[in-house]
Design a protein around this nucleic acid. Structure first.
Lengths: 340, 340
DNA sequence: ATGAAAGCGCTAACAG
DNA sequence: CTGTTAGCGCTTTCAT
């Protein structure tokens, strides 16, 4: 029970292994890296020893020498709303897919959440650390300009967020404006004439959703007001209740910036005794799992998160290979359920 | 608009910087590392140059030399149920807190999701990579034994999961058995006499919750059956519906292994026309944000995720410092809302 | 097909 | 207080 593993000699470095195998460190390096120019027998011997001792080459040393780390940085800038748990469900899901996607391509993932207000240098610091080969930024937050600046001098970066005419950084994201239009059109199609947008229009993704809704409202001649709320569920809850109280009876269609907000809104509407969709129609955004489980199930604008993750990684890999790449705009999809 | 940053000379290494400052690389290293034995004027000069050129020492090189990386590995083993999105909400929230907590202590976080079935060597590989100073395992999945094995020879590891009598690895987690007991007691206190446990009893955390419920059921003389389901929402949905159909009228209290499952169950109960809590009482586990928004709001067993993250990091830091540490068992808390 | 040797960028003795 | 020097563990010419 004491010595299951017969590791008589400690083999921590490629040199240790070389000594045992009776070859030079160089050969071991080549063998383990799968280079072709190694005698098959030698290679097998080396591999056997490596396996026996559970040896793995030190990635730090390898990285230093080859000037690449095999690690992709993923950074989530937290805007003013430091604990914006809300988009978290969305971001975290995206993160999960990213992890799988990067792994599939042999990369490791280094995660950082940063508070730009406390550390203006957040992006350069990450890039300059020497620890990552490239970076994926999840969400532009209120850092659009800083990201633009960095993009000018650093190629292997891709950003999840909104696409703005003429921007310089490579972005992957849903067509938020179109999504907003679809949402408003649905509300109107199901009878709403007095629309409200629920959410923070500060972040540009949300601003674009709002703008899209405005497009539709204007074109179809219905009213649309903005009901600003924070994004964290704890604060948003009361804020929504207050909004509903202030506009009692004057609103018959709500477009919530996210499903989380929509779900909160549903609760608030219920508490005021308003029926959905009969008194008030409601459309969310994201199509998180929760959208299927609310009462009534939420009509919402779907973002294809898996496709987003795939796109982010694919574009980044191409940039890592030296290519220039265009941004990727994904189509939103109206998911009709029962809230509108 | 073209040259905002006057970087006449490229300064990529500590040696470049040293040349400009007219000192030796060693001095630059000391100055930037904040060592005390550097002349204040020299230090300021060096810092100024570093700032001007946006210089940051290469962490790979530094790590290699100092034999520490400043990176903590966080690994999520995905058991049989590869896409166990369900606990994901929980795990991902924990991950968010971990990121903040590690950052606060000056560590970076390297994330890996692994499928142990496809890569038996997942844990050793991560540890042996030389990229991380220590590792946090999120969830024991079905890898308890492998983790035990590793714990014998590797100290800086802490695991989120269930504590088993006499285990050798350091774990942080909720007292699942107690949580299960509280859940069952609540169901019984609100009138249930025919209990069911909803979920997968494979993972030990869930097994412990079930065992706790059994303790209570036995002691109080009520029946308890297990209703096995997968953990991913897509499959669990139908499975729950089928269970309810099979046991129509024979169950009046359900303890769901997680809030996500509970929420799904709520939907299924509604579809069958069963009233909660009048016909069937329901208790969840986790106290995710969703628990507050279901209809009716979910009575559930709260896990303190933030405290968990804090505990994981604190214990890991102590182990990194060479200490031995005990496991940390957190108390669950019954949150009474309206489903039981 | 393999060995020897140089060095990736940084830090930590050891001298001064 | 600062310079010099010797590596950390690995990869990659350049020889052979």
């Amino acid at each position: 029970m004491s010595d299951t593993k017969p590791s008589r000699t400690v083999v921590r470095t490629i040199t240790d292994l070389a000594r045992i195998a009776g070859v030079s460190p160089g050969t071991v390096s080549r063998a383990l890296a799968g280079k072709s120019l190694v005698n098959t027998k030698t290679r097998e011997k080396i591999e056997a020893i490596a396996r026996e001792h559970g040896f793995r080459p030190n990635q730090m040393a390898s990285g230093l020498r080859r000037q690449k780390t095999g690690v992709i940085g993923v950074v989530i800038p937290l805007g003013h709303d430091t604990r914006q748990q809300i988009s978290d469900t969305f971001f975290m899901t995206l993160l999960g897919f990213l992890a799988d996607e990067l792994t599939a391509h042999g990369y490791d993932l280094m995660l950082r959440r940063v508070v730009p207000d406390e550390d203006a240098d957040w992006l350069d610091r990450f890039i300059g650390s020497g620890m990552i080969d490239g970076v994926i930024v999840i969400g532009q937050s209120d850092q659009f300009e800083r990201i633009e600046d960095v993009a000018d001098g650093y190629n292997p970066m891709v950003v999840w967020g909104n696409h703005n005419e003429g921007q310089r950084h490579c972005v992957v994201g849903t067509d938020n404006r179109l999504g907003g239009r679809l949402a408003a059109e649905r509300l109107i199609a199901t009878g709403a004439r007095h629309l409200a947008f629920l959410g923070d229009t500060g972040p540009m993704e949300f601003a674009a959703r709002f703008a899209g809704a405005q497009d539709a409202a204007r074109r179809l001649g219905v009213s649309l007001i903005a009901l600003p709320t924070h994004l964290s569920p704890d604060r948003a809850g009361e804020e929504i209740a207050r909004h509903l109280a202030a506009h009692a009876g004057a609103i018959d269609g709500i477009f919530a910036a996210t499903d989380t907000l929509a779900s909160l809104c549903l609760t608030a509407l219920r508490e005021r005794g308003l029926a959905v969709p009969d008194d008030v129609r409601l459309v969310g955004f994201d199509d998180l799992p929760i959208a299927r489980q609310t009462v009534p199930p939420l009509t919402t604008i779907r973002q294809d998160i898996a496709a987003g993750a795939r796109g982010l990684v694919q574009l980044l890999l191409r940039r890592l290979a030296g290519e220039e790449t265009e941004s990727l705009i994904l189509p939103p999809q109206l998911m009709i359920r029962q809230s509108a």
